[in-house]
Design a protein around this nucleic acid. Sequence first.
DNA 1: CACGCAAGTTATAAATTATAATTTATGTTA
DNA 2: TAACATAAATTATAATTTATAACTTGCGTG
Lengths: 228, 228
Amino acid sequence: MTRRAKFRQITIDEIKSLARLQMAEGGTASLSLNAIAKHMGMSGPALYRYFESRDALITALIVDAYEALANALEETAARFVHQPVRECLRQVLLTYRRWALDHPIDFQLIFGNPIPGYQAEEAITAPTAGRVFAPILRILERAYQQENRPYPAFLESLPPQLQVRLSQSMQEVQPSLPEKVVYVGIVGWYHIHGMIMLELFNHIQPLLSDPAQFYSFEIERLFDQMNL
Amino acid sequence: MTRRAKFRQITIDEIKSLARLQMAEGGTASLSLNAIAKHMGMSGPALYRYFESRDALITALIVDAYEALANALEETAARFVHQPVRECLRQVLLTYRRWALDHPIDFQLIFGNPIPGYQAEEAITAPTAGRVFAPILRILERAYQQENRPYPAFLESLPPQLQVRLSQSMQEVQPSLPEKVVYVGIVGWYHIHGMIMLELFNHIQPLLSDPAQFYSFEIERLFDQMNL
DNA sequence: CACGCAAGTTATAAATTATAATTTATGTTA
DNA sequence: TAACATAAATTATAATTTATAACTTGCGTG
């Protein structure tokens, strides 16, 4: 990497870092290119050398967030891969919530409403989205394929017309995955993910004294249903 | 109501209506006081006679949305009150999703991330929030109290330290509600609501061919667990 | 050494929310 | 009915946005 490119990368990183900081203080809306530039000691339009537009910056942040979440999940999955399936998936799901609470802004960027007028570009975010779901699927595959656990009873009553559509990128990560595994994964992910969104996007929070305990409780309940 | 007050109310309604329309087209961010005024044939600052600020307008819209959702749920609950508990709750939950899909903007206003820099005022929104949860609780109370159904098995393993905190307003709607009923309600609401948020805020949608079928499937699964 | 391109600058355009000052219209009251 | 108070709307203006254009500076490589 040339000397110039290195400095360029540093500048890009600093811009993104400041953008995250700004959003952490005032919400996803308070992102201001001008303010960032000012804070970096340069003036407004200079930033457009590094990001084509405000939306381009946001897209970059979203992609980063996706990667970071996926990395966190994969790392946990790897660390507990020698533990029993139940413990391994438990740790992954706990990491999921932990990461969301530790990086609320990034989580909002990924799963929240689009920012002011920002239009998420499916083409850019979709590939990485698969990486988030993949670790969960891999653990479930181990449970039902390798260890031959019986599939959950509720799969029997699943409507036959209902079909899963694994995205291109996810199929690359996990080729030839049995449909039943994916179904179980979706049911679990919806359940878990929904809880986290509710906790993070508030409005329901005051209902429970300790969301963490409730989350753990629901995880065990889910595992029981999954025959883990 | 005086003649002037009536016109004033009409104007307020028109502003809110146009605001909703605007958001429906360009997302919650595209709300512009100027554009509304222009569309109404008056110029900018005139709107400030009716709403103190942009945030005040948004708050009004949020309150309206809460009311509308609560009304829809209550209406369905009333219409099916003579049906078996299971059918009644099913219809209420179907209405919940239906309303969310039919009014995505309002649903985002209520449960999504705050708009660009907008800070939700708990004091204003909390009271109405109770009305959304209340119909569900009432049906569950009927099941477990009046009809003496056994409580779900999973309640046994609920951590004893976990406590529910019913808001002031909810206690007024439902006084002296057994804690167990509230627990079941929360578990159910989290599950259901989480699914809807995922469907609405996308990012996971392409995973399933028919979200409606999945939703119905999960409802039945939930009911089985609830002994309904 | 000199040329080319990257990086940053200022100037400017088109929006936004919001305030101040002013005019116009309405409704009530002496 | 006439006069006055207040509501409603206007224009002008300020302070911010994002974004483009044109120009200057300076690095680094051939």
